[in-house]
């Protein structure tokens, strides 16, 4: 099966079995708030955040787990919300960019100009927050390793590296 027909196949499955038919996710914590959701089968976490809850800070740029724009934290670890089915997350704690708006990294990105069009930036902040939580003084190499799954087409990488390297200096 080629990729295009796989996509169509998936859409058919969603349409036939899902989309209108919902199932509950009774215990999902998002940014400290508890939700009891009833959402269509087959929905990704990104879809639920953006379409059901209006939390549009999480962006979807590729929709298949290749670019990192949709990164959120699940139990404190970065996860690609566009390829995470929401029904697998019952009982989980999710943190999105909306829950990190006052993180010192936001100011570090602002100060160093680590943003151009901004479409990948919320995902960059989320990934960086997981990095500095685990390793508050990462080396340049460690920053590059941890951030290489978050693509940026505008090329803000040098500024992102600078922002993370100096995030707690101001």
């Amino acid at each position: 099966m080629d990729a295009a027909s796989a996509t169509t196949e998936l859409a058919l499955i969603r349409c036939t079995y899902g989309d209108t038919r919902t199932r509950s996710v009774p215990d999902l914590k998002i940014n400290g708030q508890s939700y009891d959701l009833d959402v269509p089968v087959g929905h990704s976490l990104a879809q639920v955040l953006r379409e059901e809850l209006g939390l549009t800070g999480t962006k979807v740029a590729c929709g298949e787990g290749h670019c990192g724009a949709c990164t959120v934290l699940v139990g404190g670890l970065p996860m690609l919300s566009c390829i995470t089915l929401v029904h697998t997350l019952d009982g989980a704690e999710v943190t999105t960019i909306e829950g990190l708006r006052d993180h010192p990294l936001v100011d570090a990105f602002l100060r160093t100009d680590a943003v151009q069009c901004g479409f990948c930036t919320p995902g960059q902040i989320v990934s960086a927050s997981a990095l500095v939580a685990a390793n508050p003084s990462p080396s340049r190499e460690e920053i590059r390793h941890a951030m290489s799954g978050n693509l940026c087409r505008c090329g803000t990488y040098p500024k992102i590296e600078e922002a993370i390297a100096t995030w707690n200096e101001h």
Binding site: R50, E51, G54, T56, G57, T58, K59, V60, T96, I97, E98, R101, V106, F109, L110, R111, D113, A114, V115, C117, G118, F119, T121, P122, I125
Partner: peptide, 21 residues
């Protein structure tokens, strides 16, 4: 000068066409 619209973009508050419902 820091980018005047950077907070909106970084904090995920800026509304792109993709975000409109």
């Amino acid at each position: 000068t820091v980018r005047v619209d950077a907070p909106q973009r970084i904090r995920g508050e800026a509304r792109y066409t993709a975000d409109l419902q």
